[in-house]
Design a binder for these strands. Structure first.
Length: 473
RNA sequence: GGCGACUUAGCCAAGUGGUAAGGCGUGGGACUGCAACUCCCUGAUCGUCGGUUCAAAUCCGUCAGUCGCCUCCA
């Protein structure tokens, strides 16, 4: 098939035409969440954009197989032996077991994804499911001379590689690892850039999850899981590996090191990275500033899909700054947009040439390094154009396969779900009738009084062209 | 200290050599008993200073500001 899509490949530092290994088929891997806490909306920006990439590929006609891991073990807050395990930290915080924590936050993650219309990947695999695969890969790495034992742990020997810093233009001499003050050196490492494949000696003895291994009872390092899980489901070559920009180093760098050392050839051709969501003070994180979750946005009255639109109207490679002012902006835009689409009458015959022409424009925007902002402009242009309602409706529905904003259904769903009980609803309807009568009598004082009375009870009346409508204020 | 990114109207944001998309908001208008909704109209010469070019937001350099990475992070 025709390969029209181009996007930025971190490996070559260029926007490149995407050509999969196998014509028409795409294997795609996403670094999933570490399930020790709720995801914040910054984490979710990556998953929204990766969802956009996956859906764009499908829209263009590719068959996509997408795999995501769930990190439920081995993710330390530092790669040295001193860091605390994130999962354990979460378990202590909530007085639960690590497995309970993992299950709870995995479920929470996918609930958030669902609210943001992020499709669940075809394969979702927790790290703890694949311990035997990890052990096998480490054994092979030791056998091939890429890994060594030191101080009870197994390390990857980065000095054995011709090129380790594959994503960086800096020379290795320039890149002084560990220059940051808060990084503690691990004395067991031969080289500063070496990383742990398997822990048996840990400074925290109460690690809950441990497994037998040829090197003693212990647990895997963080990086090994993505290499193993991707190969388990996608084989020894894959097309696209995704993640947030912060994964470029060390996580993805280490994945490439161990994977290509293991298989002995090029592993993944395209590396797709999403930039961060920031707030005024910088990168959003769980420990810095307000902990913004999907549920928090909902509690404040925002539709999660408005946040999706917020992400889509910016470019994935640009930092995006979050503010409530910006979110208010986009929430208003989203409400107007779904109303506009929701009012279209889906009747009559679609004009195929109009349909094809706008669909081509929409695809062209996405194929140009996933320019979703431009794709949304195509949507607005299309809605403003002199097309038949049903053609517009069909186009909106088609675009929504990628945008996933529930364009054609959200308005009707909101109208139907007014969130009040039957008794209150019949009361409202009675009042509306009373007001209608008052208006007919030109008794506007009474009509306004009724409207105000309902407003005090949290109900807003509007005289639209389609008749009187009411909603929660 | 090293490396990198970004800087476009009140806000978000597209645009990668030919004289600034789109959205939200604002203001004005139509409609409406009023309000809301809806519709129409409405705004910037692109951080600074230089350079290249017939032509630059777009290329090069400079300065400034913001942010990121350099073994926790999506």
């Amino acid at each position: 098939m025709e390969n029209k899509l181009s996007f930025y490949n971190t490996l070559t530092r260029k926007v490149e035409q995407f050509i999969p290994n196998e014509d028409g088929r795409v294997s795609m891997y996403t670094c999933g969440p570490t399930v020790y806490h709720y995801a914040h909306i910054g984490n979710l920006r990556s998953y929204i954009v990766e969802d956009l990439l996956e859906k764009t590929l499908r829209y263009l006609g590719y068959h996509v197989k997408r795999v995501m891991n769930i990190t439920d073990v081995g993710h330390l807050s530092s790669d040295a032996d001193t860091g605390e395990d994130k999962m354990l930290k979460g378990a202590k915080r909530e007085h639960k077991t690590v497995l309970e924590i993992a299950k709870f936050y995995t479920d929470a993650f996918f609930k958030d994804c669902q609210k943001l219309n992020i499709k669940k990947p075809d394969v979702v695999e927790p790290a703890t499911n694949c311990i035997s695969e990890f052990i096998h890969m480490i054994e092979v790495l030791i056998e091939k001379g890429y890994a060594y034992e030191s101080g009870g742990n197994i390390y990857f020997d980065t000095a054995k590689l011709e090129e380790y810093y594959v994503f960086s233009s800096q020379s290795e001499k320039e890149l002084l690892v560990g220059v940051r003050d808060d990084v503690e050196a691990d004395e067991n490492k031969k080289n500063k850039s070496d990383f742990v494949l398997w822990f048996t000696k840990s400074k925290f003895e109460d690690q809950e999850l441990k497994w037998e291994s040829p090197w003693g009872v212990g647990y895997p390092g963080w990086h090994i899981e993505c290499s193993c899980i991707s190969m388990k489901h996608l084989g020894e070559s894959m097309d696209i590996h995704c993640g947030g920009v912060d994964n470029i180093f060390p996580h993805h760098t280490n994945e490439i090191a161990q994977s290509e050392a293991y298989i002995g050839h090029k592993w993944c051709n395209y590396w797709f990275h999403v930039n961060h969501l920031n707030d005024k003070s910088g990168k959003m994180s769980k420990s810095n500033g307000e902990f913004l979750t999907v549920s928090l946005l909902e509690a404040k009255g925002y539709d999660p899909r408005a946040y999706r639109l917020f992400c889509l109207q910016s470019h994935y490679r640009k930092p995006l700054e979050f503010s409530y002012e910006a979110l208010d902006n986009i929430a208003a835009a989203y409400d107007k947009l779904i109303k506009k689409v929701g009012m279209l009458k889906n009747e009559g015959e679609i004009c195929q040439s109009d349909f094809d022409s706008y669909k081509a424009k929409f695809e062209a925007a996405l194929c140009d390094d996933l320019n979703s902002a431009m794709a949304i402009t195509v949507l607005y242009d299309m809605l403003k154009d002199e097309l038949s309602d049903c053609t517009k409706y069909a186009l909106a529905k088609s675009f929504d396969e990628v945008l996933s904003l529930d364009l054609t259904t959200a308005y009707a769903t909101r109208e139907a779900d007014n969130g009040v009980d039957e008794e209150f609803e019949s009361y409202i309807l009675t009042k509306i009738e009373e007001r209608k009568a008052a208006k007919k009598e030109k008794d506007f004082a009474k009509a306004d009084a009724i409207r105000n009375e309902l407003l005090e009870k949290g109900i807003l009346l509007e005289d639209t062209r389609e008749g009187v409508k009411w909603r929660k204020a």
